[in-house]
Amino acid sequence: MYQEELVFGHPASMTDHYMHYCPGCHHGVAHRILAELLDEMGLADQAIAVSSIGCSVFLYDYYKVDCVEAPHGRAPAAATGVKRARPDNFVFTYQGDGDLASIGMAEIMHCANRGERVSTVFVNNTVYGMTGGQMAPTTMLGQKTTTCPGGRCQEREGSPIRMTELLSQLGGVAYAARVAVNNVKNVKKAKEAMRKAFQAQLEDRGFGFVEILAACPTNWKMTPIEANERIASELIPYFPLGVFKDVSQEEAC
């Protein structure tokens, strides 16, 4: 008889709820990383999540943490309200690209600029998933969606917005990074970036932001493996990975 040990299991702060996401959707990876950090950093029982509208609207089904649902795009404003009311709690938002970079552009910019002590996980899969594959503010030029069937055209629809670069210009931001979860190496880096974004809040340094480039095989009309490959070949060259801002304790406002 040998004694084996479980080296990779289900994060304690995650419910065992079956995830509603499509096969190969990266929301699940992002969810799991976040849950692992809540466990490792001992945050699950003091966290208050603010969910958004989009595919991740059911976020609250997957975590054993308190959660309030915000209107579309307003999660950073709702999180501001939660954190101002309960400064001792750990407060995070989880938002998609339509939610954060389109309808919620004002809320994320000002929440970040005020340096609210909250953390935002931004999942950029370049498309509106929940509503059926419409054009997003981060849709790539030439990418076909149900509302730009001929492909996104710069003259008509503008260029995909690089949120991490924009946010890193703002004074209240303590940490801003863009990561991907398309391979093992990137998953590990994504988790470390998220940890640093959370630490920015815990150490009272400012707003923490992590953009995750994510696959949406269904609306990209690709297999999960093809979608993963698209992240490396098309997305990362336009949305470069890396840490765009990391303000140390001494520099914090």
Partner: peptide, 19 residues
């Protein structure tokens, strides 16, 4: 908090009252 808009102010209220 002087919010960026009435939209945001009302959602901040939502967050604080949820707390």
């Amino acid at each position: 908090v002087q919010a960026e808009s009435e939209l945001a102010a009302a959602s901040m209220l939502l967050g604080a009252t949820a707390a």
